[in-house]
Amino acid sequence: MNRFGIRSLVLWSWLSGLILVAGVGWVIGFVVLHGFPAIDLRLLFGSAPPWRALLGKVPVFNGLYPAVLGTVVLVVVAVGLAAPIGMAAGIYLAEFSRGRTKQALSLFFDVLAGIPSIVIGLFGFSLSIFLHRNVSPRLGPCLLISALALAILVLPYLIRATQTALEALPAEMRLAAVSLGADRIQNLWWVLLPNSLNGIVSGVILAIGRCAEDTAVILLTGVVATAGIPRSLFDSYEALPFYIYYVSTQYADAAELERGFGAALILLGVCLVLFAGALLIRHLVGDRALIHG
């Protein structure tokens, strides 16, 4: 390539990066600008006294606190269900499967990654109906079904993240432990996995974001406009993305729309806190495995 070509390529890459950052900055700035004025204790707790509401002593009827809790519980349960399974599948793909099995499974997980979330929502919905009819009439669309459906939705991210992180490790690192007399499990557990944590946690963060924002799945599997603080995994619940969706389609006045932006800003905040939690776990596990402990 001549000099002009290389310069154009560099310029193009710069521009693309700039546009991307500007786009993200714009969206976040927009949400902050519109949402920040709406955020106050009333938005979260409505007319209930905040401390008593936080302790669950009084119900919150016209605030977002139940939706915040619903989203947090939903994300934690969904990622908690998906992470061990996804990591195990990723480990299997990277370390144990070979040849045709590996090809077939890779294709299957790619297909799974490509399934629209509304279809997975339908699956969750059908599952809840099945359970309602065949297991117990008390079962129906609920927090657990939503979490289960979301777990299926984010499984491919976790599988791929784990697999690629493991496969990217240098061959010398693999041989180092093996030459000292480690068996495959010891090598995996004490060397390969701790050194893949960054990649795995990237997958977990992606999964958290996906679970926190998804509306299609929860719409069909148990989210409702008013449910109060989630009492158990078998009840319907409130969630922030659903509130945002609901408000943006049916707002009556400007103030209500502003509350929607407030909810969006809170959702971003919830995601940040969950990301920080994932990074903290990575740090603690990594430190224990590789430095101290």
């Binding site: 010398e172 690192m173 180092a176 590789l290 430095i291 101290h292």
Partner: peptide, 12 residues
Amino acid sequence: MVFQTPNPLPMS
């Protein structure tokens, strides 16, 4: 065994 290129594990 000790290898040609030093291969300390990425640990302390």
